[in-house]
Design a protein around this nucleic acid. Structure first.
Lengths: 215, 215
DNA sequence: ACTTGTCCTGTCATGCCGTCAGCTTACCGA
DNA sequence: TCGGTAAGCTGACGGCATGACAGGACAAGT
């Protein structure tokens, strides 16, 4: 599955090469957390990694290309987000804890990867299909599971027929992603994490089941 | 209130100056819609405006500075979003139409200004206070009104006490903003606008009132 | 030691950035 | 009508990032 890592000019990267390549990715990752995306320059990344710009261009076509690489790695890890929803039941008290844990896990994942996710979000919003695909890869793992949950509840007659499972799941996931990427903003605005999370969980529960949770 | 427009080196801008300044802003705006933020160069904007880069730097410190200007203009227009919520009642059928019209107006505003809003979102997420303030200026007009609505319903005992009005309003607004900026994404994913809007309205209604709407 | 293929960097042409001095244009009062 | 003054614009320049290449350093096998 994982085709060999290749340089831009087609050579196969060996042990040493892969190491520097990874070091460049790590340094880029750090830079993205500490300075605005627009100001991240190849030369800075290279300096930070103790190498030269030419080396960078041996492994990546440009900054964007390297970012895509990081994002891809993250997306692979992010697939495990599915576990936050799959095999969960949405009735009674366990429904409430399902919502709570989904919110928790989501915010946590976003906080851990906020720098890259910011850039992915931008790329997707700008219409770049490559970024859009990655964003989907991450969100789909959760969205699809949620969609299934809604469909099941609908089948049992517990949720109105005129609810579109996909739209509902998508909206909720978009909400979680948005709130997560502006967590600091909420704090500045006077809303504490402690009151934010239950509210998100409440909204998720309301959206999926259509009913208030029993806590 | 509106202090005279000034150039970077302190001169007062006259008629002609303000015209070119505005032309530069318009061209920048266009560029933002057609190419990724990272690739927007001063020289391109200047060329498009039929002037030289030096002129650009007479009116703006850099690209970011000019973007802030555009965003500020948009934020002023955006203040009218308040009217989507203020003076609305959330009971019965009018509650449902309130939710519908809020969603409609919000998505429409976002679609009209998506290019700049993308950049503002990025800047805010990156922690830039200037962008964050602008984002707040736009969203607060809606968020504050919604917060009030929830507080009122709470006072009447129609909404649980343990709901934090600010957190709820903020989350809903964040959701609307997120969905709006990825409208195209939803379509690609197979969710149509027609089913997206009612779902968002439903979520808004559920969040504010805690109850299903009567349509 | 020699060969082979990987890995890195010095160097260079190109192009954008951001600034300045200086030229042109518009306005205004005498 | 005629300067005088401030606004408005640009050519030109040093500085830096980009991206390509050729050649040197290095490790591993023979």
């Amino acid at each position: 599955m994982t085709g060999q890592v290749r340089t831009v000019d087609g050579r196969v990267a060996g042990r040493r090469g892969q190491a520097t390549r990874q070091k460049l990715l790590d340094c880029l990752s750090e830079m993205l957390s500490s300075s605005p995306y627009r100001d991240v320059k190849v030369i800075d990344v290279a300096r930070k990694a103790g190498t030269s710009p030419a080396t960078f261009y041996q492994y990546f076509p440009d900054v964007e290309g390297a970012v895509l690489e990081i994002a891809e790695q993250m997306a692979t890890e992010g697939a495990q987000l599915t576990s936050l929803v799959e095999g969960r039941t949405w009735v009674g008290k366990s429904g409430w804890s399902a919502a709570e844990e989904l919110v928790d896990g989501f915010l946590e994942f976003w906080r851990r990867n906020d720098a890259i996710l910011r850039v992915v979000d931008l790329g997707a919003a700008e219409g770049d299909k490559r970024f859009y695909k990655i964003r989907m890869k991450i969100l789909n793992s959760v969205t699809n599971s949620l969609t299934e949950s809604v469909k099941e509840l609908q089948a049992k007659g517990k949720v109105d027929k005129d609810v579109s499972p996909a739209a509902m799941a998508g909206s909720l996931v978009a909400m979680l992603a948005a709130v997560a990427s502006h967590q600091k903003g909420f704090q500045t605005w006077g809303v504490k994490q402690a009151e934010l999370k239950p509210n998100l969980a409440l909204l998720v529960h309301l959206g999926i089941t259509g009913k208030k949770p029993t806590r």
